[in-house]
Amino acid sequence: MTAALFALLFIQAIDSTPPRPAPRSIAVDERLAADAGLELGDRVVVASAPGGAGDTVIVAAITRGRADPSEVARADYRVRMHLDELQRLTGYGDRVDRFAVGTTSASATDSALRAINSAAFGFRAHRSRDIAVETSRTFLVVSRFHRAIGVITIVASAIFLLCIMLLKVDERRRDIAALRLLGISKRSIIRSVMIEATLVAVLGSAMGVALGWLASSIINWHYRGVYRTPLAFAVVTPGIVELAVALSLVLGLGAGLAAGRRLVRQPPLDLLTGRHESRRTARAAA
């Protein structure tokens, strides 16, 4: 079982002259160490009020913060120190903010919860998992926001993909006309268009996944630098890859099929001479 107490402290670096023997030790997080130029063995004064009387302590460890999304945008520094010292510094007396209780198994957790809550000392025991859900609400909102943005992006990409595939097939109209004039069946032509569309979609997807991986690496590098956190901001998961590939295949094949069918319906000679287009233009202009 561990007990925790949180308080706002003021830290002041001092020169290395020891004011009294055997100062207590503290652990500071690496951001504070970097910003304040603290190193292991440095002596600092910690106080509960600015300029107030405090304790001289020695930096015994430099810690790295956990990848906690709820703290990502906060620039607070973290210091870990002995509980009794913090209680004394803050004038809290024999009080703590919370206890963390370890159990031997899931069933032991249940019985511990029941036992603690039925004792009803005026505080409640919660499962760590439930607390995590509660404290990660911010994160859930951000996730929902990202998902909504993702849907909009997918719609834009789908339109883009559809356009490109239509153009790609349209560009082949003379080849298709030549094939038709050679006696190749409509079915074979559509099949060849579809195979081409599939290849383009698969190759495009592979390049897209590679590009996505690269982009996510850049995003993580950037935000980890900005927020000084080990958090991963963008992750290319197998699910995302599957969605992207499936989407590009469906859209690519759909567009290929639609454009291919439209082209094989035109008389081959018209396609060859571009007459179908002239008629279309004239109709459109009229």
Partner: peptide
């Protein structure tokens, strides 16, 4: 207006 479907898709894409 020569390629209406194409132009429409482009406008839609730009709109999104």
């Amino acid at each position: 207006v020569r390629h209406r479907a194409r132009t429409l898709l482009a406008v839609l894409g730009v709109a999104v």
